[in-house]
Computed example of a mutant assay.
Amino acid sequence: MLNNIFNKKKKYATVPSQQVRQDVPEGLMKKCPSCKKIMYTKELQKNLYVCQSCGYHYQMASDERIVSLVDEGTFTEFDADLLSENPLGFPGYEEKLEKDRKKTSLNEAIVTGKGKINGNETVLAVMDARFRMGSMGSVVGEKITRALEHALDYHLPMIIFTASGGARMQEGVLSLMQMAKTSTVLKKFSDNGGLFITVMTHPTTGGVTASFASLGDYNFAEPGALIGFAGRRIIEQTIREELPADFQTAEFLLKHGQLDRVVPRKELRETLSKVLALHAQGGDETWLQN
């Protein structure tokens, strides 16, 4: 009897893990970094890259974000042909730029243009963290400046979606100069009555946070976004104190008065169109406090 038990054939065959890897197409499934739930990539795309289980917001490519926000057929891109060079002769910089261009089909870490959101015309600038981690080089600063000048000339509002690791080290001080450059044109834009909205996405750090990302008439952010200037470890070592667990999150900044609202991605289109329509009509802003 014991022999029969041990010699009994298994009901289910074991599939070698290597064979499983070969049979499952790459990119078919994704695991949520927060709740660890596994989901189909297509379902994630339909849900605007937000986990249906826990609400975790994945990073979003610039083209997909524009499609999710702008009325179909209304977007016109600006300055798509602007390319970064290597002014400081930094070793390997050109090769890294070319690699990112092939990987993302973008020429730089930001896409600018104009379009309509629920019929409200606006100028848009959308940073893309896939290209050099959304770092702010000379071309990024120039594209933002040109977009703001267009908005100023045509009396249009301006919306910037930030996603950046900060200044681009391969361009040194030229990268840091973009902080002053963009802030100066923003001051001119504001002095002439322009409406400027920022939406900070994960991550928004360094010189981008210290310049145009924090200068909006409305400063919004997506849930869970990392927003800050210096890194957590550097700050803790400097002040010699342990920081709260939620430090530098969008929710922490909202609690301490540095944001106007944390807006889930599915509500962004409605929220932005509401602000744009409100200012076009000179309406009441009390809804923002609700």
Rank of each mutant, 00 (worst) to 15 (best):
G231V: 01
T14M: 12
L215T: 06
S62Y: 01
K266L: 14
L268K: 02
E270T: 12
G89R: 02
I197N: 00
L254F: 12
E85M: 11
F220I: 03
E270I: 05
S135R: 15
G73K: 00
M29F: 15
L278W: 05
D81Q: 15
Y154P: 02
P16K: 08
G92P: 07
F161I: 08
N192S: 06
I38K: 09
E149R: 14
E270G: 02
S190C: 02
G257F: 05
V199Y: 01
K31D: 07
P223K: 04
E108Y: 06
V15L: 14
D79A: 13
H256T: 10
G137F: 00
K30G: 03
E285M: 05
R232E: 13
T271M: 13
G55D: 00
L186W: 02
I144K: 10
Y49G: 02
Y12C: 08
P25H: 04
Y154N: 15
H256C: 07
E94H: 09
G115P: 06
T41H: 08
P203M: 11
I234H: 14
A277C: 09
L215H: 04
L288W: 06
M127W: 03
Y154D: 14
T209I: 08
A250G: 02
Q258M: 15
L186G: 05
N47H: 10
G92R: 10
I110H: 02
L82I: 10
G194F: 01
T198K: 05
V15W: 07
T209N: 09
F6I: 14
E242H: 07
M1P: 05
G283Q: 14
L97H: 05
L156Y: 06
D128E: 07
V262I: 04
G207H: 01
A147F: 05
I144Q: 09
T286N: 13
L2N: 13
E149P: 08
A221T: 03
E267C: 10
I197A: 00
L28F: 04
A277N: 15
S17A: 14
V208Y: 01
C32W: 09
I239Q: 04
K9E: 11
S34H: 11
E241I: 11
E171D: 09
I38P: 06
V275H: 03
